[in-house]
Design a protein around this nucleic acid. Structure first.
Length: 725
DNA sequence: AGCACGCCGACT
DNA sequence: GTCGGCGTGCTC
């Protein structure tokens, strides 16, 4: 498709052809401030350019641009238009406006800045995950930027914050060939809460939220245009409960005329949520944003949001930056799930992104989960958010009966059950439950390295060099040290000299085999990350699943067996207990209630096997909040995260040491290190209070910038790293 | 990463 | 006196 608009956009202002006299620049707001694509920390600041007259109309805040910078052409985003640049700086002309689409809204930019600051990273690193890569063809498809002009006529000279993408002073050729509205079913209509009808949005019609203490008030506040903040642990035993609950909150926010955003951990949860949304409000009335949808669909959906064609966005972690117009409510589901953490620098977590964003945009925030993260508990403790609590009566009505099978575990003499590491109580319950419906068996992920013990005396196997715990490496099948990685060939027990380790590392597949023998004539299937299974029928079967991959049963599981608690608990780490409880709660939530509800079968039972532990007691009481609160209290006493904040600095020994010394922190920042890591690398850990967080990360950023300017090797900095302690 | 500017040494 | 080596630092 030949497009007469593109050449003029892309050619931009040609540097070489300096015409007689000064090249014409835009008459109004001739200076464009640009965020450039640079990996160098000391260039992580805006630079100003002159706007050539011919780019004036397109050079609006939020568009992608190309600029000449230090002899090379760089990509960037135009952040604002100004009357003057810094005095005494010679400005270069803007190179080109890549596309008139406004892809970076002012509040999203402000959020990205706050995230970069909070994680001591560069703005561009954050923007890379906030704005999906451009797919040029998608922009031409249907409903161009001109559509927005039609529905939302901009003023003669849009102010900086106005998202109106195209200045009407320039004839827009798109206006002629692009039909307004939609002929291909992509944009049925702009979704305004008014279109949805009152039956969906009346706060009195938030029955699920209203079941929680303060929930009805929360919904009413949202509908009234206020911005409350809340943490909620979802009541178990109601398949499909959480998507409906979150939708109620989102619709309440929509009713106030504001947009809503729901962020879920992974594609599976997103599929569940979308199924409900399709059913309740229709596929065209919300937008999903997920990196797993592929580049082109992702950008297509992103554009729908950027053009303001929706007021409900759902997606995975990057959707936390979705440019929802007038955001009224941000929701994060299951914030304890590790998928919410971005795996690339600056490793930001979707919960923290939404926290910052809700403050910047004055939006409401809802942190909802099957369990409770220590961070979410902190929000309650500090009175930043209120807790929407399920009453004990509500819990009792819906929670399954939880049985802790700790004592009989070791006395289990039945070889079949022993092989399947099934306590007799678990076997009994499963046998009974199979007469009434499906049974879920949660086993540890294969990648979850269990600590090994001597097969004869049960002494835990330790590394001969560093006394770290030995674990089985799936790839090699040989035990190796979990700390130093040394392969323990020819291991023998330090206590009794026995040479065999207790068999461990049983994946879901082997559990399927063992259970098949323990339960003849029962259908046994596996559901793992590699072989996902979304739904299971309401028929008797054993479903073996790894944490996070549990399929949903239509009317809940008759029983849920949590088998690998000890293996999961044996992992070293500060947050192991919390993680294990969250995994258990996630699975236990899929069980039927013990009492049953109208139209729902009862008799649901959860059997948790393993040594007695705090997480196990919390599961029995079905109270993740109390557990998180106790943990947080303990961490505060010990000065450990997330009661305090941490930062990690790693790099070549000399540079890292010099850097930490130059930080010049006083006693209020605890310093641990250096720890030798790899080839001549040093690792330092910093512990500091939340109050000092901004000051510490600011110092980390500025010092890193000056080190980078001085051509020192770039240091790895991670703020609040997970899984280090 | 490139490009300017600068200080010093070599050559017309 | 002018040209050009590449070393340090800035890049709107």
């Amino acid at each position: 498709m030949s497009d007469p608009l593109q050449p003029s956009l892309l050619a931009g202002f040609d540097l070489g052809s300096t015409l007689p006299g000064t090249p014409k620049t835009a008459e109004q707001l001739p200076v464009a401030r640009v965020v450039i694509d640079s990996a160098l920390p000391h260039l992580d600041r805006p630079f100003d350019y002159l706007v050539p007259a011919e780019l004036d109309a397109f050079a609006q805040p939020g568009v992608r641009v190309k600029v000449r910078f230090g002899g090379q052409e760089l990509a960037g985003f135009l952040s604002e238009r100004l009357e003057h640049g810094e005095p005494g700086v010679k400005l270069q002309p803007l190179g080109a406006v890549v596309s008139p689409e406004v892809v970076l809204s002012a509040p999203v930019l402000a959020t990205a800045r706050a995230v970069a600051e909070r994680y001591a990273g560069t703005l561009w690193d954050v923007l890379r995950s906030a704005v999906p890569p451009r797919m040029a063809r998608v922009e031409k498809e249907t409903g161009t930027a001109a559509e927005a002009t039609e529905t939302n006529p901009p003023e003669t000279n849009p102010p900086a914050a106005d998202p109106g993408p195209v200045d009407p002073r320039v004839p827009n050729r798109h206006a002629d060939d692009a039909p307004v509205g939609d002929q291909h079913g992509l944009h049925p209509h702009s979704v305004d809460s008014r279109d949805l009808g009152p039956s969906h949005v009346d706060p009195l019609h938030s029955p699920l939220l209203a079941e929680y203490d303060g929930g009805a008030h929360f919904a009413a506040e949202l509908a009234a245009g206020n911005s409350p903040r809340a943490v909620l642990s979802a009541v178990p035993n109601r398949p499909g409960h959480w998507p409906a609950l979150l939708l109620e909150a989102a619709l309440a926010a929509n009713e106030s005329g504001r947009g809503a955003l729901i962020v879920v951990p992974d594609a599976r949860d997103l599929a569940r949520l979308c199924t409900l949304l399709d059913e309740r409000i229709g596929a065209g009335n919300y937008v999903r944003l997920s990196a797993e949808d592929g580049q082109t669909p992702r950008y297509r959906n992103f554009l729908r949001v950027a053009r303001g064609n929706t007021n409900l966005v759902v997606g995975t972690r990057n959707a936390a930056f979705a440019p929802v117009k007038d955001l009224g409510l941000a929701i994060i589901w299951d914030d304890a799930d590790t998928s919410h953490a971005e795996p690339r620098a600056p490793y930001h977590h979707a919960r923290e992104v939404l926290l910052l964003r809700s403050e910047i945009e004055n939006a409401a925030l809802l942190v909802a989960a099957p369990g409770r993260s220590a961070e979410a508990q902190r929000l309650i403790r500090s009175n930043w958010a209120l807790e929407l609590r399920a009453s004990r009566a509500l819990l009792r009505a819906h929670a399954p009966r939880v049985i802790a099978a700790s004592d009989e575990f070791e006395q289990n003499r039945d070889p079949l059950l022993h092989a399947a590491r099934l306590p007799a109580a678990a076997w009994r319950e499963a046998k009974r439950a199979l007469e009434r419906g499906p049974v879920l068996v949660q086993v540890a992920r294969t990648g979850f390295m269990p600590a090994l013990r001597c097969e004869r005396c049960r002494t835990s196997a330790r590394c001969t060099k560093c006394t770290g715990p030995l674990a089985l490496d799936d790839a090699r099948g040989a035990p190796s040290c979990g700390w130093c990685g040394l392969v323990a060939a020819g291991w023998s027990c330090a206590e009794c000299g026995f040479m065999r380790l207790r068999a461990a590392s049983i994946g879901a597949d082997r559990t399927v085999e063992e259970l098949g023998r323990a339960f003849p004539n029962v259908n046994v299937v596996a559901a793992t990350g590699a072989k996902p299974l979304h739904h299971v029928p309401d028929a008797p079967a054993l479903i073996v699943a790894t944490p996070g991959a549990e399929p949903v049963a239509e009317h809940g599981y008759a029983a849920v067996l949590l088998l690998d608690g000890d293996r999961m608990m044996s992992r070293e780490g500060l947050r192991t207990g919390e993680e294990v409880l969250n995994r258990w709660m996630g699975a236990a939530q899929l069980a039927r209630g013990h009492e049953g509800a109208p139209g729902m079968p009862g008799g649901g039972t959860v059997v948790v096997a393993g040594e007695p532990s705090e997480p196990m007691r919390a599961l029995v009481r079905f109270d993740a909040g109390a557990y998180a609160d106790a943990e947080l209290g303990e961490r505060r006493v010990l000065g450990l995260p997330p009661a305090v904040r941490t930062a990690l600095v790693r790099g070549p020994a000399a540079t890292a040491d010099k850097f930490v010394a130059a930080l010049g922190f006083g006693d209020d920042v605890r310093l641990h290190g250096p720890v030798l890591e790899g080839e001549g690398e040093h690792r330092w850990l910093l512990f500091y209070s939340y109050a000092q967080g901004p000051a510490v990360t600011r110092k980390l950023r500025t010092l890193r910038a000056s080190f980078s300017a001085a051509k020192e090797p770039i240091l790895a900095i991670r703020v609040d790293p997970d899984g280090i302690l």
